[in-house]
Design a protein around this nucleic acid. Sequence first.
RNA 1: GGGGGCGUAGCUCAGUUGGUUAGAGUGUCGGCCUGUCACGCCGAAGGUCGCGGGUUCGAGCCCCGUCGCUCCCGCCA
Length: 630
Amino acid sequence: MHYARTGLDLTPQTRQTPAFSKVFAMHAYRTHTCGQLRKEHVGQTVRLSGWVNRRRDHGGLIFIDLRDHYGITQCVIEPDAAAFPACDKVRSEWVITLTGKVVERFAEAVNKDLPTGEVEMRIESIAVQSEAPELPLPVFGDLDYPEETRLKYRFLDLRRERLHRNIVLRSKIIQSLRQRMFAQGFTEYQTPILTASSPEGARDFLVPSRRYPGHFYALPQAPQQFKQLIMVAGFDRYFQIAPCFRDEDGRADRSPGEFYQLDMEMSFVTQQDVFDAIQPVLLGCFEEFAEGRKVYQEVPHITYEDAALLYGTDKPDLRNPITICDVSAVFARDDVAFKAFKGKTVRAIPAPGAASQPRSFFDKLNDWARSEGAAGLGYIQLESDGGKIVGKGPIAKFLSDEAMAALVAQAGVQAGDAVFFSADAKTDRAAKIAGLARTRIGTELKLIEENVFKFCWIVDMPMYEWNEDEKRIDFGHNPFSLPQYDTAAFMNLKADSSLNQDDREKILGIKVFQYDIVCNGYEMLSGAVRNRDPEVMLKAFELAGHGRDFTEAKFGGMLNAFRHGAPPHGGCAVGLERVVMLLAGEENIREVTMFPMNQQGQDLLMNAPTEVLPKQLRELHIRVVQPEKG
RNA sequence: GGGGGCGUAGCUCAGUUGGUUAGAGUGUCGGCCUGUCACGCCGAAGGUCGCGGGUUCGAGCCCCGUCGCUCCCGCCA
């Protein structure tokens, strides 16, 4: 009996006619999903549709594991059944519809790993919906496959359990975030995708205008200006799951081209109000999907400056217990004869319990530091000698007993520990290498706390930073943030060619009400209380080397809005893929993105980017100039 | 733009000092098998060793170039 095909031809009305048998009244494709059948269904005739996950041929007996979005059901057929020859032909990943009776399995044949494992279907008929050739990427099993293959056959990769699970998790997380935002009184609004190019920040994706030759739209790097305009427009508490576009190269935790943010903004708020609004949303979401992993509820506030010193980075991983300290003063002492560190910033990275590590441990770290461009990574091993702590290792002999005692006290180390040193004439270099070493040492010594999420706020970001290449002042982070500075004094700052060292230090020292949330070393969120005073904003850009005309031309819309009644406002944006990545336990953002591009910004499935027809270019007044090949 | 790693069967990989006909697992195809769930057993087919050039009597292996992927640096207000 092959009635599956017959079922296809029945109109819904016919199928409901009582005169038809129960079998003919069945849905054309399925009465249940592949994850649904249990003991209670035993005796029922059911219809399932899905992909052949695996077929096991015992000659006289064929097992077909049928898989759909919901699960896997084992189906079995014996040789005397009419559908046997057809079942014998099916292969992995064919799409089939099976009809048959649900039976209970023998006690020995129960599969405890399968929710449907107490029952199976005795196949009575089969309808082949779609065949598949030998697979370029097996769906069954959990082997790793090359990225190129996975991206080209993304539709197959997405059928695999891990990726399928991650994408569903992503959807659930978005739903959770949305509900939590609504619960906090936020409202979701959309902002344009085709907008204007903005001079600051990353490279824009440009969209040529057909009607205005030589003019371009840009895809938004973030809805930054729009959300501020929404506040000026009198809507309070905006949020959006917003697509953002930046023409930048990829990283493991950063998609090239496009990504999503949970973007939010609120009016009449201080920095603390923003924290109070978003922190429970984020932590609540982590708690909801933690699956037994611990979510630390205390979220310390760490200043940007402290983070640079203690962790050597603005995104510290607090699961690592090591903290860095500055020991420049110890090596500057007259009773310390180590010339290589004199006059430099020296940061100490304690390595708890590492004194007994073999020589190779220290050599390996030193080699690694050199590969990072450091001069090396000096170290001292600390041992106990009759109750007194003494130093061992190449550098130790240059330190007097008193200097050693000072070092031990400052770094908070004890006998049995080692301490590494990162030294550089440039403080930020010394700090950065120390930060990398901290991570490396923590990992090598297995000090990183596992199965936990540890958050911190990074606050008081610097408004500006020194651009060494162009010898000028640049915006450090976001140009729209509110300076933590007396307004009158700010308006009197000078940043022209007469800029002297004092003025420069003063300007580079300005902090803003800008903040990040970092979790396990990943930047999860970034935001600020905004600057809404047009004159202060013009001045802020002036200090970064942009004249009033430039700022008016590029941000005229927003400046104008600020001249017509702008409420105090602030907000932030959460990196959605990073949240999903951490909760899914993945280390690559492609594992939580349905159709990602490769690191070079190509979509290997859809073949983007692609050349277009000459006609299309003509309409857009565009001529392609190929780069010269060297 | 720069650096590291990788590129061998449909897929995952091995391949010694440069030396016979380039192997394994898996998948595919054929045969056997009535309780498997990574089923098992027997057999077969399947290769431009990324591509191009060079050294050599002889290159998957050495050299030069090139392409692709990946990780990192730059970049990411």
